[in-house]
């Protein structure tokens, strides 16, 4: 029993060890990796991805999955830019309303997603994938395929303002992570997500309204996707359909690599932070040591297979589709 517990405790730390190992490896190949400026760069590129990954973490904790992020991020990014520009173009003026407005849009998209999954009883991966396609189409329809520029210097200060070397965006992402942590550990819905992931039947017989909780999970995810969209716009200064690109693969990989199990019930937002950092360190490190960035998808693909493989208890599973 003790040996088993020790093993389990060790397992918990594997993702962090992998992260440290990767950092050491890239530093050994090219010492430039280990620089403050490079870390600040990784922090910026990781901020939008962290928000999206944290969002999907809640859904995965329940044992479902949300693959709608590319569409949701695209719609939120585009609507955010339009709202901001329509409200005077500056966060300092009425433009700030675009932020809650976008979070609301994210929540609505998440609610639609959850409702379709729960009410029509469609597996979440397919319901959310379909809605992701709808979202991409919607954002294309809104923009007509064009880019929307954001010129507001105050909004862009999320990227440009540096405090202690790190961009303001990174601090904002950290704050959002702390909120997510609070939701996860200290609220009833957060704890009930774990209950559903740990045993849906048992949770239901204890009287939890599982359907409602699932929908709530998708709403929370949608809000975090919207946050990710805002950071992504701040980072590039433009909003377009492409803003959502690649978030699906990267965020799901991050969550899984961070050690949150796909079957639900274990892991959490701190795991996701580690996972996002692993993914971004790999992306950054490959560039630093001179490998073309297009290897990234392949490497992440292998990583995700390895992570799911290692985290799955195959004895308890009979049939996997």
């Amino acid at each position: 029993m003790n040996q088993f517990l020790a093993m389990e405790n060790f397992r918990k730390w594997i993702p962090l060890l992998v992260l440290i190992g990767l950092a050491l490896f890239f530093t050994a190949v090219n010492p430039n990796f280990l620089s403050f400026r490079n870390f600040a760069r990784i922090a910026i590129s990781a901020s939008p991805a962290l928000m999206v990954a944290v969002g999907v973490t809640f859904v995965i904790l329940m044992g479902s999955i949300d693959l709608s992020m590319e569409g949701t991020v695209a719609v939120c990014a585009v609507l955010f830019a339009l709202m901001l520009n329509a409200l005077g173009g500056s966060i300092a003026g009425w433009g700030w309303m675009a932020i809650p407005g976008t979070l609301f849009v994210g929540a609505i998209l998440g609610a639609i997603n959850g409702l379709i999954h729960v009410q029509l009883k469609i597996p979440s991966f397919m319901a959310s994938l379909s809605l992701g396609f709808v979202g991409i189409g919607l954002s294309l329809l809104i923009t007509g395929g064009n880019r929307i520029q954001i010129e507001d210097p105050i909004f862009r200060s999320l990227l440009t303002l540096r405090i202690g070397g790190f961009a303001l965006m990174s601090y904002a992402a950290l704050a959002a992570l702390l909120i997510a942590w609070f939701i996860q550990d200290n609220t009833t819905i957060g704890r009930n997500f774990y209950a559903i992931g740990g045993g849906e039947d048992l949770a239901r017989s204890s009287g939890l309204n599982v359907g409602k909780l699932r929908i709530t999970g998708f709403v929370v995810a949608g809000i975090f996707f919207a946050l990710g969209a805002i950071f992504a716009v701040a980072r590039l200064g433009i909003a377009e359909t492409e803003t959502g690109r690649n978030f699906m693969f990267v965020s799901v990989t991050s969550v899984v690599v961070g050690g949150t199990a796909l079957r639900g019930g274990s892991g959490g937002v701190w795991n996701t932070l580690v996972g996002v950092l692993i993914v971004n360190v790999i992306g950054n490190g490959m560039v630093v040591i001179g490998l073309p960035d297009y290897f990234q998808d392949g490497v992440l693909g292998l990583l995700v297979i390895a992570a799911v493989y290692l985290s799955t208890d195959r004895r308890s599973l009979s049939f996997v589709k």
């Binding site: 994938l129 799901v252 073309p292 998808d297 693909g301 297979i305 493989y309």
Partner: peptide, 25 residues
Amino acid sequence: TARLKVPSFISTLAVGGIALSVGQF
């Protein structure tokens, strides 16, 4: 999917990533 028991939507997403890299390379 069948031997490592990874759900197919994840395994094929991952293998798709690998194929994408090969294509780009």
